Amino acid sequence: MNEILYLVIPCYNEQEVLPETSSRLKAKMSGMIQSGLISPDSRVLFVDDGSRDSTWELISKYHEQDPLFSGLKLAHNQGHQNALVAGLMQAKEHADITISLDADLQDDTDAIDKFIAEYYNGCDIVYGVRSSRATDTVFKRTTAVGYYRFLKLMGVEIVENHADYRLMSKRALEALARYDEVNLFLRGIVPLIGFRTSVVEYERHERFAGESKYPLKKMLALAMDGITSFSVKPIRLITTLGVIIFLVSVLALLYLLIIKLMGWTVAGWTTVMGSIWALGGIQLLCLGIIGEYIGKVYKEVKHRPRYIVDTFLNK
């Protein structure tokens, strides 16, 4: 009991939500400290991912006013996943437990007590899983369900309806640190660690203020990372598709030879043009999928740092 907990919260242009977020998290952490659930050395670690507004100024002010708040400033914007890993790796040096959550108050903070309880029951990783998607639009709900099913079809091990709201023990973080790939998809990496895991269900709230930092474009990019980082099935599908098209072309050739020998004359313009467009589209699609993998290999072999820390505030 009485372990040191760090809440790790990536922030990008979150000046509108930070006042309310810091207030609620302070009340939550103070209550757990007073009850003896966590150590007084526990902290709320805000990670500024190269924000362009006053996010870092607010983090610095909270740190000066109360040592409960810590701040980590990255040299420039590296993306949510890299910012989250930066915070987790920094927290690993000071904490026994970390819980990652978003700054927009959509993750139910009341579930934190359940996370801690599961940890004390022997779990190294606890996943926060949404109990429903009632707050999502029909489009987002439909695409999310389809995405998780598609990932499983591609052979990716992933916890359905789980984002990045999770608890990780120090031992689990040390194991995570051994995954040094540049293309990060934590929802796929963490299940690979192993160790004992558990699930805590929670209701996801509406965003308190501001706009989502994950528009459709970023969601699609994250989805592509999830597929291409953990599965080679798309490449194998290309091979299968190539074999099928080859067999179909052989049958088509035999058919054309037969009708020619029988003296039938068919204009065939529509068939020829349709075949050209179809095959051209398939070839471009296949090249695009191969290009995604080559691009990932290109990024990995350069082995550039995933993030660079500018400032770390911690009392």
Score class of each variant (00 low, 15 high):
residue 297 V to R: 00
residue 20 E to H: 10
residue 275 S to H: 04
residue 279 L to N: 07
residue 41 D to Y: 10
residue 57 E to V: 05
residue 268 G to R: 13
residue 76 H to D: 08
residue 238 I to M: 13
residue 292 E to G: 04
residue 32 M to D: 02
residue 115 F to C: 05
residue 162 H to I: 01
residue 133 R to E: 09
residue 177 A to D: 15
residue 26 K to E: 09
residue 39 S to N: 14
residue 212 S to R: 10
residue 65 Q to C: 08
residue 194 G to K: 03
residue 47 V to K: 09
residue 228 T to D: 01
residue 74 L to I: 12
residue 157 E to H: 10
residue 236 R to N: 06
residue 105 L to Q: 05
residue 53 D to E: 10
residue 257 L to D: 06
residue 189 I to F: 04
residue 276 I to L: 11
residue 213 K to D: 12
residue 61 K to F: 01
residue 53 D to C: 11
residue 212 S to E: 09
residue 20 E to P: 02
residue 309 V to E: 10
residue 179 Y to I: 06
residue 3 E to N: 13
residue 251 L to I: 15
residue 31 G to A: 08
residue 15 Q to S: 15
residue 148 Y to K: 07
residue 276 I to P: 04
residue 272 V to T: 12
residue 73 K to T: 08
residue 111 A to K: 01
residue 102 D to K: 05
residue 19 P to K: 15
residue 105 L to T: 00
residue 168 M to G: 05
residue 202 Y to C: 09
residue 245 I to E: 08
residue 239 T to L: 13
residue 89 M to T: 06
residue 59 I to G: 00
residue 293 Y to L: 00
residue 189 I to H: 00
residue 73 K to Y: 07
residue 156 V to N: 04
residue 155 G to H: 10
residue 46 F to G: 02
residue 125 I to D: 03
residue 181 E to M: 03
residue 20 E to D: 14
residue 36 G to M: 05
residue 195 F to G: 02
residue 221 A to G: 04
residue 265 T to D: 12
residue 132 S to T: 14
residue 235 I to A: 09
residue 304 R to Q: 11
residue 306 R to C: 07
residue 193 I to S: 06
residue 105 L to Y: 00
residue 221 A to K: 15
residue 158 I to W: 06
residue 249 S to K: 11
residue 20 E to V: 14
residue 7 L to P: 14
residue 268 G to K: 13
residue 42 S to M: 09
residue 285 L to R: 09
residue 49 D to V: 11
residue 41 D to Q: 12
residue 233 K to E: 15
residue 267 A to R: 11
residue 235 I to R: 07
residue 88 L to W: 01
residue 278 A to K: 01
residue 31 G to L: 07
residue 194 G to Q: 06
